[in-house]
Simulated scan of single mutants.
Amino acid sequence: MNASQQKVVQYLNEALASEQALTRVLQSQIAMTPRGSYRSGLETHLGETRDHAARVGRRLDALGEGSNPLIAVVGFAENAIGQALALGKTPFDLLRGSGGEEKVLKNAKDACATEALEIATYTALERLARSVGDDQTATMAASIRADEEKMLGRIMREIPKLTEAVVGADVTGNGSYDVTTTGAADAVRDAGEATKNAARRTTSAAKRTARRARKVPGVARVEGQAKGAVASAGDLAIARYDSLTADEITDKLGELSQIDLAKVDSYERRNQNRTTVLSRIASLRGDEPWAGYDELTAAEVQTALSEGDDERAKQVRAYERTHKNRAGVIKAAEREHSNA
């Protein structure tokens, strides 16, 4: 491979890293955006972004240099990681602080910056490819750049409407953000419908469906947050919730799963919004030892521990001590750790 081809491959890998980061960003933004024209635009562009990544990957293959993560990291690490850290957060964590309307607006402004970066990336790639006589790469880059320019224009047209929503919520007190209509809530409803259908066939099938859904990292928290947004006190895992003091509630939080913690968090924010309760929830919310862990019985956890994974045993022991604190599970974890 000559020097000109090597440089084209470098730029293609940078473009691929950018598309992969943008895919994660769009998924996160869709998850917290209510139904409407802006979310429709994000969903359309997510499909385009996946197509862009596939096209860039095929071009790399044609040049004899398939997708090379190491080259991508060298050429584009700061931008890709920066995008992921700035925008690719768990969507309902972003709802803390200012209201949902303002978070959607801030995401839209960030999306403008992201699209501008994409446009610059493909402008540079097209010019480079033309300069070294690679017309196929140049044509592809120009086509993808046109999609990014179209998306930037669409977001800019949405900014005034999103700003008006912020004014309604934060100035006139007429909020419009509805967590039950977001992409995450829709996904939870879809999963719930699938579970209901499975339940009609057999109860065991329904349980397997629910557990499979919750084994996807992040789904448990999003499900709990969405349910908590519309829950009553009677729907919470802590009995007589509204009659308890903040201290009484915080004493019980350690027993809850990540789903139930998220439900309580959302309910508390809609009602008394007590700092002591919310701070304790924040300290407990975190990754399970593995996705779906909270759905398992003590016996099932002990079976998993018997596989002899020392790192897993340490994670289980630490998690159990701050959460359910099941003596049998902790002893099994300690035993596996000492035997490793």
Results as ranks from 00 to 15, higher is better:
residue 94 L to S: 09
residue 99 G to W: 03
residue 108 A to S: 13
residue 110 D to F: 08
residue 117 L to W: 03
residue 125 L to F: 06
residue 110 D to T: 09
residue 124 A to T: 07
residue 113 A to R: 15
residue 100 G to W: 02
residue 96 R to T: 13
residue 127 R to W: 06
residue 115 E to H: 10
residue 109 K to P: 01
residue 114 T to M: 12
residue 134 D to T: 08
residue 122 Y to R: 05
residue 111 A to E: 14
residue 126 E to W: 03
residue 132 V to P: 03
residue 98 S to C: 05
residue 132 V to F: 12
residue 122 Y to Q: 03
residue 103 K to S: 05
residue 114 T to Q: 13
residue 116 A to Q: 15
residue 132 V to W: 08
residue 105 L to A: 06
residue 116 A to Y: 11
residue 130 R to H: 05
residue 118 E to H: 13
residue 98 S to R: 12
residue 114 T to S: 11
residue 99 G to I: 02
residue 106 K to C: 01
residue 110 D to H: 11
residue 105 L to G: 05
residue 97 G to N: 11
residue 134 D to N: 11
residue 113 A to I: 14
residue 122 Y to C: 05
residue 134 D to K: 10
residue 111 A to S: 14
residue 134 D to P: 09
residue 109 K to Y: 15
residue 124 A to F: 04
residue 96 R to E: 09
residue 116 A to E: 15
residue 127 R to D: 15
residue 103 K to Y: 00
residue 110 D to K: 07
residue 124 A to S: 11
residue 124 A to E: 09
residue 111 A to P: 01
residue 103 K to H: 10
residue 112 C to I: 15
residue 102 E to W: 06
residue 110 D to E: 09
residue 123 T to C: 06
residue 113 A to P: 02
residue 125 L to E: 01
residue 134 D to F: 07
residue 95 L to P: 00
residue 117 L to A: 15
residue 133 G to W: 13
residue 129 A to N: 09
residue 130 R to Y: 07
residue 102 E to F: 11
residue 102 E to C: 10
residue 133 G to R: 09
residue 102 E to Y: 07
residue 115 E to T: 12
residue 122 Y to L: 04
residue 129 A to C: 13
residue 128 L to E: 10
residue 110 D to Y: 07
residue 94 L to N: 06
residue 101 E to I: 04
residue 107 N to E: 06
residue 104 V to W: 02
residue 133 G to P: 13
residue 99 G to Q: 06
residue 101 E to N: 10
residue 119 I to A: 05
residue 103 K to T: 13
residue 132 V to M: 07
residue 96 R to K: 12
residue 98 S to Y: 05
residue 117 L to I: 09
residue 124 A to L: 05
residue 95 L to A: 03
residue 130 R to Q: 10
residue 109 K to M: 13
residue 98 S to V: 11
residue 105 L to T: 05
residue 124 A to D: 11
residue 93 D to L: 07
residue 124 A to R: 13
residue 94 L to W: 00
residue 116 A to N: 12
residue 128 L to P: 02
residue 130 R to I: 03
residue 103 K to V: 15
residue 117 L to M: 12
residue 96 R to M: 07
residue 113 A to Q: 15
residue 124 A to N: 09
residue 97 G to Y: 08
residue 126 E to G: 06
residue 120 A to Q: 12
residue 133 G to V: 13
residue 104 V to M: 03
residue 113 A to H: 14
residue 95 L to S: 02
residue 124 A to Q: 12
